[in-house]
């Protein structure tokens, strides 16, 4: 069992937890993820490692309540335990040797973009961090992000905070203004990563994306997370999650992610019915 040591609400449906998991903390690297099960009957879901503390033996996760499992996870409190928590999984991001980087985070993706930016910043790289949110109410980690980069460009879709723009606009302006990036790292919804890759493609800038495919085991034994990269089948859980954004077939990946949409909607409904019953009692 893996104890929840801290819980913090970042916005209406985004939560941060620190989990006691010494085995995971011992080897965790930026870009890797964990798989957890909330309880004995639960499903396995992947979440990126937001940060780790080797000495304390802890892992921080940040998640958005989008479905039955993340809602159930969000109801747990400090002191409660997760049934299963396995990792670190996936390959660590290859950040060595990067001197000037643009890190692009979209929504919850910022929770993952932020540790990447921080790692690069600590390695002495110049980091432009572009963070995009739908509106001001869902902005997370603003102070942390500011401290982890050279320049923070905060934008919202509706202009309710920061500039009204899409992350791709900002990225294009920065490139056109003469910034020479060794790499662009994009983390967020697949549609955002797709357009970041399309933005950099004409400039030939190396673009790394973090693919959040549907997973079951996370150790390479099922291929549920497979995607096409440069025409070859890759497994996001062992070959990734980082891939060359100019080679990923995003349209296919987005459609594969929607595979269980119906079942997921049903699960949320059932979950909310149960909550309602609990309140009535």
């Amino acid at each position: 069992m893996y104890k929840i040591l801290e819980k913090k609400t970042l916005n209406a449906n985004t939560k941060q937890m620190v989990i006691d998991a010494p085995h995971v903390a011992k080897k965790a690297q930026p870009g890797q993820f964990i798989i957890l099960r909330v309880d004995e009957d639960g499903e396995r879901i992947p979440l990126t490692i937001a940060s780790y503390d080797r000495e304390k033996g802890t892992i921080m996760i940040i998640f958005q309540e989008v479905g039955a499992t993340t809602k159930k996870l969000g109801l747990l409190n400090e002191g409660d335990c997760l049934h299963d928590f396995v990792g670190p999984l996936g390959r660590a991001s290859e950040l060595e040797g990067l001197k000037k980087v643009a890190v692009v985070g979209g929504g919850l993706g910022c929770a993952i973009a932020y540790p990447q930016a921080k790692a690069l910043h600590e390695m002495g790289a110049e980091v432009d961090l572009i963070a995009g949110f739908r509106n001001k109410d869902i902005i997370i980690l603003e102070d942390e992000m500011r401290a982890a980069c050279t320049n923070l460009h905060l934008v919202t879709d509706d202009g309710s905070n920061g500039r009204k723009a899409l992350v791709t606009q900002v990225l294009k302006e920065l490139i056109d203004a003469g910034n020479q990036y060794d790499a662009v790292i994009a983390i967020g919804p697949m549609i955002m990563m797709k357009f970041v890759a399309e933005t950099t493609r004409p400039y030939g800038i190396k673009t790394i994306v973090s693919m959040n495919s549907t997973m079951v085991d996370g150790t390479g034994m099922c291929g549920g997370c497979r995607l096409s990269v440069g025409g070859e089948i890759k497994f996001a859980c062992v070959d990734g999650p980082d891939f060359d954004g100019h080679l990923v077939d995003f349209d296919e990946s987005m459609r594969r992610s929607a595979m269980y949409k119906k079942q997921e909607a049903h699960a949320v409904e059932a979950h909310e019915c149960n909550l309602h019953k609990m309140e009535v009692k």
């Binding site: 085991d217 390479g220 291929g223 497979r226 096409s228 595979m259």
Partner: peptide
């Protein structure tokens, strides 16, 4: 435990499972 795929077109359509995934 590493599944082999067929490497035919259309293998990534939704509803194509490795037996490992299906049985897991």
């Amino acid at each position: 435990g590493l599944p082999t795929f067929m490497h035919v077109p259309g293998e990534n359509y939704n509803g194509v499972y490795s037996a490992n995934e299906y049985l897991t």
